[in-house]
């Protein structure tokens, strides 16, 4: 069913400009990706709002769902700077967003979705010179949802702004800064899964933090 019209879930021109992979490899990865890059968000939009609209494309009966959301932050101020990553458990869910969510409004802005190669450490931060997204460096218009020209904002949004500014003040950098979201179901009590095992104090600690990291690396190896 693609002879008459172009399906909306075809890959677009979006790419991670800093990915060090050739085009063909990137396309192969995108054809399996379950991660979306979401652009043109308001700086005030919360992860819960994002979760709400993107949960409408999940297929839990197929083992899907929202794995995690990674909010894009200004690298200097640690405040949202208008983009995020939404990671699903399945590729089909990401495609559904391209068909049904991309180009519709969230928080009264038209948002844009694109398949992404997958989150890697450091990508939660803006790449513009002043810490935010590059597009906001060059923007010529007044956009209240993205900080206006300068620090102006609509009156109603002042309270939201205060919350937003504090929310990610604790954001960390480096490995393990971003949670994994929970992996596949595992049998309790097997070697690689300490679920419900009688615990002793000395085998815990940092090993727990390593688990999601390992899974992330694994994701990348597969992708």
């Amino acid at each position: 069913m693609a002879h008459v019209v172009t399906p909306l879930d075809q890959p677009s021109n979006y790419k991670d400009s800093q990915a060090r992979l050739d085009r063909q490899k990137q396309n192969e990865l995108l054809a399996r990706s379950s991660t979306l890059y979401i652009g043109n968000l308001s700086f005030f939009t919360t992860e819960e709002q994002i979760y709400e609209i993107f949960s409408k494309c999940t297929s839990p009966e197929e083992g899907g769902g929202i794995k995690r959301i990674i909010m894009g932050l200004d690298r200097n101020t640690r405040t949202p700077c208008g983009f995020c990553f939404v990671e699903y458990y399945t590729h089909a869910e990401a495609l559904a967003c391209l068909r049904y969510v991309s180009g519709t409004k969230l928080d009264e802005r038209i948002i844009r979705c694109d398949l992404d190669l997958g989150y890697r450490e450091g990508r939660q931060f803006g790449r513009g010179k002043s810490g935010g997204q590059v597009r906001d460096e060059h923007r010529q218009d007044y956009d209240p949802g993205r900080g206006g020209w300068g620090a102006q904002a609509q009156r109603l949004e002042i309270e939201r702004r205060r919350e937003v500014e504090e929310r990610y003040a604790d954001a960390q950098e480096g490995p393990g800064a971003v949670a994994g979201g929970g992996g596949d179901w595992k049998e309790a009590g097997t070697a690689d899964n300490p679920l419900k095992r009688a615990r002793s104090p000395d085998d815990q600690g940092d090993s727990e933090r390593a688990a999601p990291r390992a899974r992330m690396d694994d994701d990348h190896a597969r992708m």
């Binding site: 819960e48 995690r68 604790d170 949670a179």
Partner: peptide
């Protein structure tokens, strides 16, 4: 409570605590 990802970070960091609570000293 600040956001969905803060929540994920919190429980992922303290999974051992949650498991301990859920299993209450060994028995389900």
């Amino acid at each position: 409570n600040r956001s969905f990802s803060h929540f994920l970070n919190a429980i992922e960091r303290y999974l051992p605590l949650l498991r301990n609570i859920a299993s209450s000293g060994g028995t389900a």
